[in-house]
Simulated assay, not measured.
Amino acid sequence: MSDKDSIISIEKSIRYISAHVKSHGREILKTYELSPLQFVALQWAGDKEGITIGELSSRLYLAHSTTTDIVDKLENGGFVRRQKYEKDKRIVLVLMEDKGREVINEVIDKRISYISDITDHLSTEEKTMLPGILESILHESEQRNNG
């Protein structure tokens, strides 16, 4: 297999694995009546101790008004709350509530279980090497995206 063919195979595998992992985790969203897009917004809100609608809009690649609608639904469902930023009252932050953390944890647990199942056939050596390889690729990806 040529280098180009290997890279094509890696891209396809990463894309498919990602889709499968997301799909298994998202089964839980039906319980909470959350859309996949609402869940992604919830994840972004959980990654920071407060995110503005503008930041969230940028991360979701959506219009500010669309993002506001998503946050409204999340807030009405008790997943997030809005709070004025203490240092600048003009800024409103979106903060995670316990119910939001609960959903994220359930989805992550479901994803972890799925990953455990699909890597169960790997040898001990492969299981030991895989996290380091993936972390190295992730680090390089982050460097290129932030640089």
Score class of each variant (00 low, 15 high):
residue 17 I to A: 08
residue 17 I to T: 09
residue 18 S to N: 10
residue 18 S to D: 08
residue 18 S to C: 06
residue 20 H to Y: 05
residue 20 H to S: 09
residue 21 V to F: 00
residue 24 H to G: 02
residue 24 H to P: 05
residue 25 G to W: 01
residue 25 G to E: 04
residue 25 G to F: 00
residue 26 R to D: 03
residue 26 R to V: 00
residue 26 R to C: 04
residue 27 E to W: 05
residue 28 I to P: 12
residue 28 I to V: 15
residue 31 T to F: 09
residue 33 E to D: 13
residue 33 E to V: 01
residue 34 L to S: 12
residue 34 L to I: 02
residue 35 S to L: 00
residue 36 P to F: 13
residue 36 P to A: 13
residue 36 P to L: 12
residue 38 Q to G: 10
residue 38 Q to P: 05
residue 39 F to L: 04
residue 41 A to V: 08
residue 41 A to Y: 01
residue 42 L to P: 12
residue 42 L to T: 11
residue 43 Q to I: 14
residue 43 Q to A: 11
residue 43 Q to R: 14
residue 43 Q to H: 06
residue 43 Q to F: 05
residue 43 Q to T: 14
residue 45 A to G: 13
residue 45 A to S: 15
residue 45 A to P: 10
residue 46 G to S: 13
residue 46 G to V: 09
residue 48 K to I: 10
residue 50 G to K: 08
residue 50 G to H: 07
residue 52 T to F: 11
residue 52 T to M: 09
residue 52 T to G: 11
residue 52 T to A: 10
residue 53 I to H: 07
residue 54 G to I: 07
residue 54 G to V: 07
residue 54 G to E: 14
residue 54 G to S: 14
residue 54 G to C: 04
residue 55 E to M: 12
residue 56 L to Q: 03
residue 57 S to E: 08
residue 57 S to L: 05
residue 58 S to T: 06
residue 59 R to T: 01
residue 60 L to E: 11
residue 60 L to K: 10
residue 61 Y to T: 07
residue 62 L to S: 05
residue 62 L to R: 15
residue 63 A to H: 14
residue 63 A to K: 15
residue 64 H to C: 02
residue 64 H to A: 05
residue 66 T to A: 14
residue 66 T to D: 13
residue 67 T to N: 04
residue 68 T to L: 04
residue 68 T to F: 06
residue 71 V to C: 08
residue 72 D to C: 02
residue 72 D to N: 11
residue 72 D to H: 07
residue 72 D to S: 08
residue 72 D to T: 02
residue 72 D to L: 06
residue 73 K to P: 02
residue 73 K to I: 02
residue 75 E to D: 10
residue 77 G to W: 01
residue 79 F to Y: 15
residue 79 F to L: 04
residue 80 V to A: 04
residue 81 R to P: 00
residue 83 Q to I: 12
residue 83 Q to R: 14
residue 84 K to S: 08
residue 85 Y to T: 05
residue 86 E to S: 10
residue 87 K to P: 08
residue 88 D to V: 00
residue 90 R to E: 08
residue 90 R to N: 11
residue 91 I to T: 07
residue 92 V to M: 06
residue 93 L to A: 04
residue 94 V to G: 00
residue 95 L to E: 08
residue 96 M to V: 02
residue 96 M to S: 05
residue 98 D to W: 01
residue 98 D to L: 06
residue 99 K to A: 09
residue 100 G to N: 01
residue 101 R to A: 04
residue 102 E to Q: 12
residue 103 V to R: 00
residue 103 V to G: 01
residue 104 I to P: 12
residue 104 I to V: 14
residue 105 N to G: 05
residue 105 N to S: 13
residue 107 V to I: 08
residue 107 V to L: 06
residue 108 I to F: 05
residue 108 I to S: 00
residue 108 I to K: 07
residue 110 K to S: 00
residue 110 K to G: 06
residue 111 R to L: 00
residue 114 Y to A: 01
residue 116 S to A: 10
residue 117 D to F: 15
residue 118 I to G: 02
residue 118 I to E: 03
residue 120 D to E: 13
residue 121 H to M: 09
residue 121 H to S: 11
residue 122 L to S: 09
residue 122 L to R: 09
residue 123 S to W: 09
residue 123 S to L: 10
residue 124 T to C: 04
residue 125 E to I: 11
residue 126 E to F: 03
residue 126 E to T: 00
residue 127 K to T: 03
residue 127 K to G: 09
residue 128 T to M: 15
residue 129 M to S: 08
residue 129 M to Y: 10
residue 130 L to H: 06
residue 130 L to T: 03
residue 131 P to E: 08
